[in-house]
Structure formats: C-alpha cells, structure tokens
Write a protein that binds this DNA or RNA. Sequence first.
DNA 1: GACGAATAGTTCGCTGACGAATTACCTTGT
DNA 2: ACAAGGTAATTCGTCAGCGAACTATTCGTC
Lengths: 178, 178
Amino acid sequence: MAETDWTDRHVARWRDHWVDVPFDDDVEGVVVRIGRLQRYLKGTKQRAVTETGLQDFEYDTLHSLMIRDTPGTASPTDLADELGISGAGMTGRLDKLEQAGWVQRTVAPDDRRRVVVEITKAGADIWRRAMALRGSQEQQMVDVLSAKERATINRLLRKMTLHVEAQDPDPSAAKSKD
Amino acid sequence: MAETDWTDRHVARWRDHWVDVPFDDDVEGVVVRIGRLQRYLKGTKQRAVTETGLQDFEYDTLHSLMIRDTPGTASPTDLADELGISGAGMTGRLDKLEQAGWVQRTVAPDDRRRVVVEITKAGADIWRRAMALRGSQEQQMVDVLSAKERATINRLLRKMTLHVEAQDPDPSAAKSKD
DNA sequence: GACGAATAGTTCGCTGACGAATTACCTTGT
DNA sequence: ACAAGGTAATTCGTCAGCGAACTATTCGTC
C-alpha cells in the first residue's frame, strides 16, 4: 500500500466511531471507492457533454436510445425504464429533444397507443461527438492499471455485478446516469 | 469467465458499432460495471433509508454531517461542497432538516456570518438506524468475493482513486450520493 | 360484437435543486 | 476610522422530475 487515498483516511477515521453497525474495512473500501470513481466519471461526462452544447439529460437520453439492440429507436417506456426515470419525466425529455430536433416521435401504425422514438441524423451526430470527448477521459482513469490488472478488476467486478443482477431479475433496470 | 453479465453483452453488442471512437473492452467494462454497481448501491440505500421514514436527501445530509473529522457539526458551505449541491440547495435542505428536528442551526459567536449546523440526538439516532439497515446490504454485495479478492480489488480501485483524486486536487469535492 | 380490464402515453400540481442577485458581516489598506 | 472588497448564507425565479389522475387505444371474454 504505497499511498493512502481519501477512502483509506475515511475508513481509518471511522473504524472506531462505529457502534451497533457491522463494519468491515474492505467492504466499506469497495463501496466508498466505487462511489468516488462514479462521481469522477459523472464529472468527466458532464464536462464532455457540456462542450458539445447538449444538456446532461439530453445526452443521457440519446445515449440510451443508441446503446440497445435496436439502436436509434425505442418506445418511451423502455427508455424511461432504462434511464430510471418516470414516464412523466420521459415525456418532458422527449418534448425537449424533439423540439431541439435530436429525435422524432411517430405513432406505431399497428398499435396506435404506442409511440416510436427515433433518433435523427443530427441527434446521432451530436451523440457521437459527445461520445468521442468522453471516451478519452474514461480511458485516462483506467490507464493507470496495467493490461493484466484491467483484466483482473473486470473479473472481480463481474463477480459482483452477476450477483446483483441475479438479485434484481429485471434486466431493464439498468444503466442510470453513467 | 464462467458467466456473462449485462456488461459483457453490452460490450459484445457494441464493439462493432463503434466508429470514430476509441473503444477498449476492458476500459468500457470497468466504467460500465462501476456504474451498474453504483446504481445497485443507490437502490439498496434508497430502500434502507425509506424504511426509517427519512427522505433520501435528509439521510444524505445527516450522513455527510456525521462522517467528518468533527462528527455532527459543520458549516452549510462545507456540507454543500461535500454533497455536491449548491449553497441555495443546502439552505433548502437545512430548512427541512431543522423543521423536522434532526439538526439545529446557530450563528457562530466569533464570526456572525457563519452558521454552525449541529445534529440533534434524534438526528443521530435515526441516522444510526438507517446506517444499520444499509450496512448489511452492502456487505452482501461484496461478500461474493473472497477475503483475498476483496484485498485485490481494493488495491486496484485505490490505484484509480489515487489517480482521479490527484487530478481533482479539491479533497472536499467528495462523496456525492453514495 | 360489446363492455370491462389492461396498457401506453400525456397532463397536472408539487418539490428539490440550481444560478444569480441580495443581505449581512468581516477584513484590509490608506 | 472608514471605504472597498471579500465572504457566508439566504432569497428569488426557473426548471427537471415525480406520482397521481386522465385519455386513448387494444385485448379478453361472455
């Protein structure tokens, strides 16, 4: 352990104060570090996205629309589930995205209750631009690990994701604000 | 690689569609998995906190107030920084927390611009109750790893947090909604 | 083939958070 | 000693998102 990070200091400070609560250094370490890395990623995304002129929630929605088995097209409900927001919230987002010209709504001809959301050329283009800006920053975070370490951490992370994905059987309760 | 998780499938699906963007399986894997684990943790916290009758943001604020070198007392600005919300937002939260009787505001006698936020007995009690509910669920996530694996993943996570903490020199831009 | 239940999406009123402006207080330089 | 500038918190207007009620369409069954 060459250096101590924020989490080490946090854990050291709190090991004593813990009363009536199970406290395991390694568990706390994993949980807190994941939180801190996620916070960092959120920040880098924020910066990348803002640079394109998109708002955070606009990018999130376009992103969700693109990274699916049917890229660029989805129902509002599916998107809402995937993004972890309410139906009402989704309506609001789509109003703004459609207004801005990034997506397009059409009613499904076979079931007129359904709405099909499709990304426009402009939408796909700006999403790709934001993606490019993002990628490099994420790369930077992971690049401090060697190839071998990257493989190891993915193996361990996968062990945990498999566990949590098994608990929550819904595969669409997914990606959140990455 | 015994089983594939959501991220494996995501990466497999997207390796091809990637154009004009650097795409590394392992980098994407780390980033996406961290996001998904964090989402899960957010969910477990949510459930634990709701069970105590607290609202999410109330718990977050009490938590931030407790896990510091001066547990149970802080300035509004420090709390806002730590929680990553604006000063205005903090004022709003403190209004509600004070109203509910979980915290108490007093002006600092030596510098009357300053406000000292202190947790009340009731506040500390309910926070502790929520903590206990939380702990066990976090434990569960990490428990799929062996003791040795837990040590390894913490080492690798620390490598990354040290990197990102070095980039963002502000140590208070910290914990977010854990 | 018609009426009740189910489903997809939207509208509505409210809430938490934001940025900008404001108030109150302290510090510094002359 | 007092004006100019800085700092801590609050107020104000706005916005995204929520849950609940509502509308429009389809399904199921008798």
